[in-house]
Nucleic acid binder design. Structure first.
Lengths: 201, 201
DNA sequence: GCATGTTCTTGACACTGTGTCAAATATTTT
DNA sequence: AAAATATTTGACACAGTGTCAAGAACATGC
């Protein structure tokens, strides 16, 4: 067996960085190959296709991101947790120069387009899976808060509402690039869900 | 002057239908040319580029859509108006077979991607403009409702919240394709903004 | 130590898509 | 009828995806 001349994980990182900045369709395998110092053909050999490479790179990101979220949602009052949640979300959208936006939302609208075409279905599933897992995390946090008397409402409905707002924030971020606006919307959402006064921080 | 062999508006309609179904990047000018019965070169001559053609087609759609929204927001109680607003929004996302999603959100995430590239800036502006105008419409509706005592809150903040939710709905639509879920979120949002009980319909 | 087998790499190729250009074409105006 | 003008058409250059066969590097068995 001839050994690989590149590191699998390095390529995944380099590829995801490009996908994040320029979109899947906007990134060519030549770009990635150049940046990674690998021949384009080697990437096809190792990953099969651009979409398959993206999928692996995305799963990597999703794991990291979910772990960070879990940590952010882990301490403090319910209000503090939700604040940390939105904060991490928005900071993620606004990371990079220029800001790169939300890779999940971007990918969903970029690839989740073709319904019925088996190819993009895997990607759609990956995006939907991360969203579902984040929703579950938020719901658990709300349920725990409810048990502590910090929240009075339906955790499932509220979690769905919150996740919808974060997806909306990802869109508004691309439309206006106005970070203070995003944070204002986030604060307003927390007030709405927690009932304006909310628990003291 | 040699006369055009095709109708400008027909091409715009045919093109937007394809863009809506397959995305801008996923639609080739050959596709549009074939469907419209026009030579590809003629499209370049008439519109300049794919993006310019998309822009014209989108502006057309945006005008129609805004008019429909304005009508939907024009009668009944505030709750009724907001319900009609979400209804039209979701129906729009779910129109077509298979459902085509939201062209504005799709376009924003698909084209608002390219960093620093002046080309896509026009498109981003067009998307942002429609969102802004819809927000203004919702805000006016809320302000009018407040004047009639049907709403007690900040119309600007609430309108921004509502528009954020609709953008989020567009994303969730692509992720899960679950229309009842979208309608549930919409209802929950109205309850949240109007204060759960709300004015009788 | 050398042959063999396996995997990776490399370059060539076919295909599709974007955009440009010059030549040919169809009208209107002079 | 000739000139002016805009549209159509086909050829071209270029970039991107994906495939393939041939070459290269290493592990193992003899």
């Amino acid at each position: 067996m001839r050994p690989r001349e590149f590191d699998h994980d390095d390529v995944l990182r380099i590829a995801f960085d490009q996908f994040w900045r320029k979109g899947v369709r906007g990134t060519s395998l030549s770009d990635i190959a150049r940046d990674a110092g690998v021949q384009r053909g080697s990437l096809y050999n190792a990953f099969g296709s651009k979409e398959a490479l993206f999928l692996q790179a995305y799963e990597r990101y999703a794991g990291d991101y979910l772990a960070a979220l879990q940590k952010a949602l882990g301490t403090g009052s319910l209000r503090k947790r939700l604040t940390a949640f939105f904060d991490l979300t928005i900071t993620n959208f606004r990371s990079g120069t220029p800001p790169r936006g939300c890779p999940t939302t971007r990918g969903l609208m970029e690839l989740g387009a073709a319904e019925g075409e088996g190819l993009d279905e895997d990607a759609r599933e990956a995006f939907a899976s991360l969203i579902s897992r984040i929703t579950a995390l938020v719901q658990d946090t709300l349920a725990a808060g409810a048990a502590r008397g910090e929240f009075d409402g339906n955790p499932a409905a509220a979690a769905l509402h919150i996740i919808t707002v974060t997806r909306g924030l990802a869109v508004l971020e691309r439309a206006f690039g106005d970070e203070p606006q995003l944070r204002k919307i986030a604060g307003h959402t927390i007030d709405l869900v927690l009932g304006r006064k909310g628990g003291s921080a």
